[in-house]
Design a protein around this nucleic acid. Structure first.
Length: 636
RNA sequence: GCUCACGUAGCUCAAACGGUAGAGCGCAUCCUUGGUAAGGAUGAGGUAACCGGUUCAAUCCCGGUCGUGAGCUCCA
């Protein structure tokens, strides 16, 4: 007698133990078809694996995140099976599900080409048609090692040897393909419906560049063909939004090979840059920040004192002048310390909030450079806040509010992470505990969700990071708030307290945009180049129909410019359709078209980027509307 | 930094199995003065990333360097 308790609490009895699939079939054919994997007594369970005599059963379909991972993991196995058949000498490494898909690492001895992917994909489709059952087997450690050693699967043997002593070692078989796997999997290859291999790249065994390079094949899979197509469409859309492509097309910035990772900003890029800073300065002034500027290169001694010489030298640029070594600053903090030290400080003036738009240089590894997202020279919207220990929570809270205000202007989503003490770190256990608790308390008091990253803090203190999501679903760290115990010590910062004695201030480093450069890159992709009016390099483009309207259009432009609107007039000898096409490509938010009718009426025909032809408008009203959108920094 | 691929006009890309290269877009000039996403003609524009080797001859083959891309790794 076996008992199955379903999610809704109902009981079903069977003469002997059954599989989840059997139960699902009893309930409905459709349910059986859509179930990817089961959960039995809280643990994931193959749908064709017999359940214990008493089982709480939950049936998961593709919409469930855990089931989705199982489904994609099974697709990875299917791919491995195809690869094994096509390349019998292959050695398999690992093949997990990842966000949006899966990959499998293969040791083939030679690289795969995109054509190879097509072959593999085709073989996978055939294996799906064969609908091979996927069966689970449990082996003893010795059996497993022998089995995989005989197959020549060195990586699998290595993995087995490292499994904990009490681990149950399981394998999955489909047809004559066998793979080491904790499982679970979908019931048979025929259950995998829509999949696509997407790319191939090198990856090191265990991510260590001292190990052999494997071929990593990426793919993705979905329950329905329509979902797969939608996903591929999104990928294509993301490619179109690539800020490197749009940056060139919209003439915002370029990167010359004379300075890898060091962007050149073109006039239109600088307009956006300056608008970002204008907003930034408004918000910082509102919060009582003072702005400072510190030098680009400073004496080696300073970097020895700050600890960068020991901890960061390999990322720094140096220069030698008059027998003295100088370093190009990779961070702004030492400069801020020297500013603090220019006066005796009283507890009465704390907190001191000093901001600095500092251009820093870091010698990042060549392979990580990526457009504006990973660069070697960038401007941080930095700030250093010097405070009394009792002011920590209030100050951190203030920074969070400031960042939130800024990001809201762009409609950007973000999530927070708190990183705690890493193994290699400085300061007392007590200091760390107090600081970490302060960060946690601030977020909890504000009712903000966060993820805890144990051991991921800076060596000098714990931190809160803001992660923004871009249209490619990549997560970018932008704002960060870091408590620092080291810098005030190393520079012997003090303030005179109420008691007339010297005390050590607490300091936080923080950035809001992070790097202006990266933030601009994110915005380009976020808006797909169609910036809100206040950020648009050209806000209104005026298009005359024929030569005789040029004068009227120039006057119109002058009028709008005088009101503070960025305007361009297209006086080229081209037809109106052509000019519109061009302006649309430049993603200009507003076009004003003037011909005989408009000159006659003293108006202009408005065309918007998103709605097309809107008809004639009164110039004064239009000007009002645009100015209001700029003033309120309205989103599109 | 590592692996693989790539580097031809401002941009997007061709072709030539080794005999110094083309198109479209863009740009300029002219014709056209046209009403809501490409009017026509003509023209300028390339030391084929850089350095070396092989060869009678190299943009093409080989090696190195630099850069770019994807991925890995790194990210105080």
């Amino acid at each position: 007698m076996a008992v199955v308790i379903l999610k809704d609490g109902s009981r079903r009895e069977y003469p002997q133990p059954v599989t989840p699939l059997q139960v699902a079939l009893d309930l409905s054919k459709r349910l059986a078809k859509e179930t990817v994997v089961a959960k039995v007594n809280g643990a994931l369970w193959d749908i064709n694996r017999v359940m214990p005599e008493e089982a709480e059963l939950e049936l998961l379909d593709f919409e469930d995140p855990e089931a989705r991972d199982v489904y994609r993991h099974s697709t990875a196995h299917l791919m491995a099976q195809a690869v094994r058949e096509l390349y019998p000498h292959v050695k398999l490494a690992i093949g997990p599900a990842i966000e949006d898909g899966f990959y499998y690492d293969f040791d083939l001895g030679e690289p795969l080409t995109p054509e190879d992917l097509g072959k593999i994909q085709k073989r996978m489709e055939e294996l799906v048609k064969e609908d091979l059952p996927i069966e689970r087997m449990v082996l003893s450690r010795e059996e497993a090692i022998k089995l995989f050693a005989d197959m020549g699967e060195d990586y699998k043997v290595e993995l087995i040897k490292e499994l904990p002593a009490d681990a149950e070692i399981s394998c999955y078989r489909q047809g004559d393909f066998l793979d080491l796997c904790a499982g679970p999997h979908v019931g048979s290859t025929g259950r995998i419906r829509a999949f696509q291999l997407t790319s191939v790249a090198g990856a090191y065994w265990r991510g260590d560049e001292n190990n052999v390079m494997l071929q990593r094949v990426y793919g993705t899979s979905f329950a329905k063909q329509s979902q797969l197509e939608e996903h591929l469409r999104l990928l294509e859309e993301a490619r179109k939004r690539d800020h490197r492509k749009l940056g060139r097309e919209l003439d915002l910035f370029s990167i010359n090979e004379a300075g890898p990772g060091m962007p050149f900003y073109h006039p239109k890029g600088v307009i956006i840059w300056n608008e970002l800073l204008k907003l930034w300065r408004e918000e910082h002034a509102r919060d009582g920040y003072m702005e400072i500027r510190t030098p680009q290169i400073l004496n080696r001694r300073l970097w020895e004192q700050s600890g960068h010489w020991d901890n960061y030298a390999e990322n720094m640029y140096f220069t030698e002048v008059d027998d003295t070594t100088f370093a190009l600053k990779p961070m702004n903090c030492p400069g801020a310390m020297l500013w603090y030290l220019t006066q005796h400080r009283s507890y009465r003036e704390l907190p001191l909030r000093t901001a600095e738009l500092g251009l820093v240089h870091r010698h990042e590894q060549s392979g990580v450079l990526h457009g504006l997202m990973r660069v070697r020279a960038f401007t941080q919207d930095d700030a250093h806040i010097f405070m009394l220990p009792s002011q920590i929570e209030q100050e951190i809270s203030g920074v969070i509010d400031l960042v939130d205000r800024l990001y809201k202007v762009f409609g950007l989503e973000y999530r927070l992470e708190i990183s705690t003490r890493p193994e290699k770190s400085m300061g007392s256990e007590e200091q760390w505990e107090i600081a970490t608790q302060a960060l946690i308390r601030v977020l909890e008091n504000k009712g903000i969700d966060y993820k805890l990253n144990p051991g991921d803090g800076a060596f000098y203190g714990p931190k809160i990071d803001f992660h923004v999501r871009d249209c490619l679903k990549r997560s970018w760290q932008c704002a960060t708030i870091q408590l620092d115990f080291q810098m005030p010590e190393r520079f012997d910062l003090t303030y005179i307290g109420e008691d007339g004695q010297k005390h050590r201030p607490v300091m936080v480093h923080r950035v809001a945009y992070g790097a202006i450069d990266r933030f601009l890159g994110i915005l380009i992709e976020h808006f797909a180049g169609a910036f809100p009016v206040w950020l648009s390099p050209v806000q209104v483009k005026i298009l005359p129909i024929a030569d005789r309207h040029h004068q009227y259009c120039k006057e119109l432009a002058q009028r709008l410019e005088a009101a503070g609107i960025r305007v361009e007039v297209d006086l080229r000898n081209e037809k109106i359709g052509y000019k519109i096409r061009q302006a649309q490509g430049e993603k200009v938010p507003y076009m004003l078209i003037a011909g005989d009718k408009e000159v006659e009426a003293g108006k202009a025909a408005l065309r918007t980027r998103s709605e097309g032809d809107v008809g004639q408008v009164d110039i004064a009203q239009f000007q009002q509307r645009v100015l209001e959108e700029i003033r309120t920094r309205q989103l599109n």
